[in-house]
Design a binder for these strands. Sequence first.
RNA 1: GUCUCCAUCGUCUAGUGGUUAGGACUCCAGAUUUUCAUUCUGGCAACGGGGGUUCAAUUCCCCCUGGAGAUGCCA
Length: 526
Amino acid sequence: MRVRYAPSPTGLQHIGGVRTALFNYLFARRSGGRFILRVEDTDRARSEDHYIQDIYQSLAWLGIEPDEGPAEHGFSGGDYGPYIQSRRVELYRKYTQQLLDEGKAYYCFCSTERMEQLRKKQEEEKSALQGYDRHCRSLPPEEARREAERRYAAGVEGQGCTVRFAIPLEGSATFHDLLLGDIEWANGDINPDPVILKADRFPTYHLANVIDDHLMNITHVLRAQEWLSSGPLHIQLYRAFGWEAPQFCHLPMVMGRDPATDKLSKLSKRHGATSLLEFRKGGYLREALINYIALLGWAFDESRETFTLAELEGCFDLAKLSRSPATFDYRKLEWFNGRYIRQYSVPQLRKELENLWQEHSPEMHGAVSVENLTERLDWILPLLQERLKSLREIPALAAYFFVAPVYEEPELALPKKHTAAQAAALLRKSRSVLEQLHSRDWVWETFDELLAVKQDWEASFRAAAADEGVKMGSLMQPLRYAITGSNTSPPLIESMIVLERLAGGEELLGRLDSLAMCLETGAEDL
RNA sequence: GUCUCCAUCGUCUAGUGGUUAGGACUCCAGAUUUUCAUUCUGGCAACGGGGGUUCAAUUCCCCCUGGAGAUGCCA
């Protein structure tokens, strides 16, 4: 078995493309076959080098390794190179010539203006026939050849000489799709005589794709269903060359819902983030992306939905593909992401962050900088880990460990049915507890030891709450606001211990005093 | 317009000629908890419509409807 992922470097790798790559990869792994990466850069106007880099980086990030790929870019080259189509143009010209010689293709001199007018006219007349009118198909071949040579010799690009494939006028093309079953298509319904060699003498997708799949011995073509209607054309091309066509499997499309119109369409930029590396930048873990993408149009059984790449390699099965399109759901991706974040160990998570922040500076909060953030992550991460949906939330959530909060909404400091004065009193009580705790001799070096210390601290605060005749929550609320500047935060006692470790006890007391002052001076407003 | 593909909760899906139509996300409620989150428990929610075939259709067939894709010297 030999399968390939054949992206064109005309844009960033997006979810749909990556899903196709993943399924091809999994199919190869599962069947002991080979997974080939081929770059289809036949569109000279739109192909760009950095898009090629994006393809490589995307696959590398996910851990999808091609068995064969462009050797000039460091991939293990197989026996079928080059794997970049722009380095194979002579091949495509040679095969085009063959088709020309056999009368299965013909030169076309119709200008783009003529084609535009034709299309416009067909649209206006709501013509049953759409597409090329085969104007040049009946040109005497010898005459056409001379004209083509004349134009090529003139050398100017865009002289309007293309080569079109002569679709048989009668009959039909039939092929068996592994997912969809038998597909039969009347030749009359195939796009009439598509261009196979453009005016710049580069091949179009259809030609290059068919030639390369054949030459590279591809046995199975797994591609998105948007290609289904090119299937019959490709079958006709294989037939014209006298080649056996590979097995086809047209994967369900990945859709997105346009928030403005509420309409579904092929997932694209208008639906939000779609490029893979954008997700990485946005704090998503590779495991989450792989797991979620694998489930887009595929399911293992009635309940299991957690899979690592390695597990997928062992259980992926085309028979379990869905035939209907899948809508991309950002929320479910987030849910997976949260789960995988919680599964990571703290060192793993820290490493991931350091790598990420090296490439993309995160949006920082106050005085939090990458330097002093990463070195303290081992203390902070355990407190944040279980409330993260994405890595990108970390700087904002961790900010209070680095800078004193600004008390913009002091009413958040008030427990239910408490006045500002009462809250300030609770704060003073907490202050005395902290002072007492500071006078004690305690040390801790690991997070586990911190948890032991926490027992003591918590007991002291509980006693204080009882003293004051309030619930623990009531005592904690002003304290929480003082320390974190919010009424929702990671566990407060652990936070204080960590903060004391990172910034010293005076920092804690200072925050309490400053909120108390704030409450007392603004008391009448609350 | 034409051709083609598709059709189970809002979303991703499982499933069968006879099931209380299963799971997950979201949402809601409850429990745990110093808040938030996590975790746990419970709940809301689906076989697009009409014809057949059959003792019996969500399941098989046809039509309709709906959705999507293609209709490029883009892939």
